[in-house]
Design a protein around this nucleic acid. Structure first.
Lengths: 336, 336
DNA sequence: TCCACATGCTGACACGTGTCAGTGAATCTC
DNA sequence: GAGATTCACTGACACGTGTCAGCATGTGGA
């Protein structure tokens, strides 16, 4: 008897009522009239027996579970990702559901996972393959995916250029990743940088991708820097794909004895955990991961039919002013 | 008809057999004799209908799910954590189960989560509260938790001292965190540092904790450095709780115009993502997150009754030699 | 010829829950 | 006081699966 978990039948027996009544009380149904006395008796019995409803039977009966699945495909890592995860966890918990994160090992693994766990809605921080989309559709699991090319996605990079141009920089380079798997994220940012420069009447930025997603090759960055700083119209500022690339840029500059920010300004993106610890401390753009998480969740709730469709996402981002950006050095070749 | 998902009854109808036969075929039972022809007919029908077994009913019937829950409580973040998560995901998937990660928002949240998801085993990277342990026990969910004070846990810090002492350092300081929530992790390392120094006949290390778990206060670190380097027997090397603290130490040294490594050696722990990007590049200790994940999984499989109890965990770790550690400067007060 | 046994398959049950129609009693309405 | 309505509660079903006893049919041995 002991050792085995208690079911709603046990609670009913202890409270001296039927199982149906127990279910009505514990699910707080208002269309059934239940006097306070029996209500309290049921609640007391449930508490005494440490009753926890059986997740599987509940899901079976209701046709859908209370689980929200966050699919974490190959998103380039930053503290922002865990910030989004934490905020989503809180939001989902507040709605009486639970969020779990699945680190997708590969595109083919989804089917196996769905045979073990049927979420009521799936949220992906990335765009999935069409096979995965089809699979979710066949199992009628609604999917919410962040649109990587949505209007407004360019805001953070726009802010980078804003800051550099505001300090008087003219000749700007953009350091990004050449990692193929990251191009989904990198390409829109590169486009946004070019557009931002054009819009401000700046010359087109010099763009270079370096290999390595999680480990940036400092030597490759150094070679780029040499190229960019060479010649009669040298670059005075480098805007970077993320803080990791910016840190690599600071390291390369240090190796080349280029002083940041007096000779070269560097700006990052993410306000990652190590950004305040570089020397000079990294000026960067802070995204609003909580804001993003709230948007994802409102999309999900819309899919669940609980709320009307939310407005289009307007990202939030702001400059975090530190020490790696300043006005450019006086040019030896004055313009015009 | 279309739009609704197909069940094993649909597969049975299409293959012209009973539901029991379908179940036998799809679960690959060997004790039932099923000729190849019907077997293939069933498999073809399942494929045609895109049959995916219903997770909830399967779990209800079998009494337990195929889900492994990784409880990620307030572990100080580093790429090691995601490395462990990824390795565990792969191991669990290889056993026909699925791993999901739950970022615990608070100690009281576990019950709500367990009402939505009943794992066959739970793995925690941290020690849980006794209430949480009791709860899991009552629901008979086996729990595997990393023992933070197990013998051998001190190996990484031991290696730090090894490296510093091997270079001739004598007067060593230990920079750790004073964050209360992190003391579970920090205290054993501090003990290990002291023991390692004593064992080598070094003087007891100077120990200081600085506030901030994810954001280390560089100014506080700088004040410590000033104290440590003052006086007639100054510290020549700083061993750090993790790479984040080491990066803060490098930043503080830079602010104080102390040259690393010529005037002061600094060693980190974790080989975090930014460790190769500091200047000087950080010498640190690389843990074996995959090795750790494999141990956790073998413990879990033992709990599931599939394997005998594994041997005690022997952590793996090795020095990653970069540029922040070198021999100490010649002392103005020669020993003895 | 009869029994024993293997083969190939099926009907029926159970898991624990949520829900709906229904039931006896009490109360209200005219 | 008969009928209508509300109150408080219950019995029975369904969700989709895994499993087990059992049922024909063939096959071999004595």
């Amino acid at each position: 008897m002991t050792g085995s978990r208690s079911t709603s039948a046990d609670v009913a027996r202890r409270a001296g009522v039927s199982r149906a009544t127990v279910s009505y009380v514990l699910n707080g149904r208002t269309d059934q009239s239940i006097p306070l006395s029996t209500r309290n008796r049921v609640l007391a019995a449930a508490r005494d027996l440490d009753y926890v409803p059986h997740a599987a039977s509940r899901a079976l009966r209701r046709g859908t579970s209370n689980l929200v699945l966050l699919i974490n495909a190959g998103v380039p890592w930053s503290t922002n990702v865990t910030d989004v995860e934490d905020e989503l966890t809180a939001l989902v918990a507040a709605s009486g559901r639970s969020l779990v994160v699945w680190r997708r090992p590969g595109a083919a693994a989804l089917q196996g996972m769905l045979a073990d766990l049927e979420p009521c809605v799936a949220i992906s921080m990335d765009t999935l393959t069409s096979e995965e989309n089809n699979l979710l559709g066949r199992l009628s699991v609604p999917l919410v995916a962040a649109d990587l090319a949505a209007p407004g996605t360019g805001l953070p990079t726009e802010l980078q250029i804003d800051r550099l141009a505001g300090q008087g920089h003219h000749r700007i380079a953009y350091l990004t990743t050449s990692d193929r798997a990251l191009q989904r994220f990198a390409a829109p940012r590169t486009d946004a940088i070019v557009a931002a420069c054009v819009r401000r009447g700046l010359p087109e930025p010099l763009i270079a991708g370096v290999p390595g997603g999680l480990t940036v090759d400092v030597a490759a960055v150094a070679r780029q820097l040499v190229g960019w700083l060479d010649g009669r119209d040298p670059v005075t500022a480098v805007s970077c794909f993320n803080d990791l690339h910016a840190a690599a840029c600071l390291a390369a500059a240090s190796d080349l004895r280029i002083e940041v920010p007096t000779e070269l300004s560097v700006i990052g993106l993410d306000d990652d955990i190590f950004a305040p610890l570089t020397r000079p401390a990294l000026t960067t753009v802070r995204l609003g991961p909580q804001h993003f998480a709230r948007h994802l969740w409102s999309l999900a709730r819309h899919q669940l039919g609980e709320t009307p469709a939310p407005a289009a996402f307007t990202p939030t981002a702001h400059i975090v002013e530190r020490a790696s950006v300043t006005a450019p050095p006086p040019s030896p070749f004055p313009k015009r």
